[in-house]
């Protein structure tokens, strides 16, 4: 919607110039604009409908995924795993999607990562899930991007998607990290949150790991690989739900703004039309009286 606003703002001065030159042209210009704004409103309204339907599904899915995510984080919390390294190599995972027009969902995630990178961008790598975070981060921190997953957001995220990404991430070398995502709270609110990631080393050095029975590196390694996929799956579900709800509000606002614009334009259109009629009448009358 922002873009449309910009285009309209540019179009305004020329319309004003035209008015000075000739009334008829303005009338035409206004009716063209009126029509395009009406079309935009139709588009935003139907986009709202679509995202409302998608949101309902995403929320239902999220309800299922919540215990899953909580279960996946429970072990790291109970075992009190912390990253021990002095200056660890960090990995930040931005969970966004390919689709825009959904408020500040993607920029919020990207901003958190940008702030993190601004403090220290050496030794920190970024994995972007979704093209939006990539396009925001690429300009300033292009050299930190290590992996980008796209084709995200067209369909609801599945476990297979998460497993594929987790597979790629498992190949990377990092000591600690974070999954940055939008946590869904309600239709009108979401919050940028993060889930911690740990290396195998950090887990084996955790203070309470010794109370866990019959562990070897192989078990912990495969456990962590699976839990990375579960965490990603959970984060993607949260992100998808926040995105759809936010798109719904954004499109609702856009439709409202378009409605306002239509009202104003109709008023100007009618006034201008009346002015043209009056002017023509004056021209006829004054021409007749001159005879």
């Amino acid at each position: 919607m922002n873009n449309f606003g910009r285009i309209l703002a540019v179009a305004q001065p020329c319309a004003a110039q035209q008015q000075q030159a000739r009334g008829m042209a303005t009338l035409k210009a206004i009716s063209i604009r009126l029509k395009s704004v009406k079309n935009i409103q139709k588009i935003t309204q139907s986009m709202k409908m679509v995202s409302a339907a998608k949101y309902a599904r995403a929320e239902r899915d999220l309800k299922q995924a919540r215990p899953y995510g909580e279960g996946a984080t429970a072990f790291y919390e109970r075992a009190e795993v912390t990253s021990t390294e002095e200056k660890p190599s960090k990995l930040l995972i931005a969970v966004t999607s390919d689709r825009g027009l959904c408020g500040a969902v993607h920029s919020g995630v990207a901003r958190t990562i940008r702030n993190e990178l601004a403090t220290d961008d050496s030794n920190t790598k970024v994995v972007c899930i979704g093209d939006k975070s990539r396009s925001i981060l690429q300009r300033l921190y292009g050299q930190n991007l290590i992996l980008v997953a796209n084709e995200v957001g067209r369909k609801p995220p599945s476990f297979l998607d998460a497993a594929k990404i987790a597979d790629e991430i498992a190949k990377l070398d990092f000591q600690s990290g974070k999954i940055v995502y939008n946590k869904f709270k309600s239709v009108v609110s979401y919050q940028v949150s993060d889930l911690p990631l740990f290396s195998l080393e950090a887990v084996t050095k955790a203070p309470k790991i010794s109370i866990y029975d019959s562990l070897d590196d192989e078990v912990i390694k495969s456990y962590m690989e699976f839990s990375l996929a579960s965490l990603l799956y959970y984060a993607m579900k949260e992100g998808a739900c926040s995105e759809q709800s936010s798109r719904m509000t954004a499109m609702d606002n856009a439709s409202k703004n378009a409605g306002e614009m239509i009202e104003k334009l109709t008023l100007t259109f009618n006034r201008t039309r009346q002015a043209v009629i009056t002017r023509e009448l004056i021209e006829i009358i004054s021409g007749a009286s001159a005879l």
Partner: peptide, 19 residues
């Protein structure tokens, strides 16, 4: 099909399956 099982010291048990 596959997944993880976690038993924590607070008597909580999590079984997470892929499917």
């Amino acid at each position: 099909s596959s997944g993880t099982v976690t038993i924590n010291d607070d008597a909580s048990v999590q079984v997470l399956a892929e499917e």
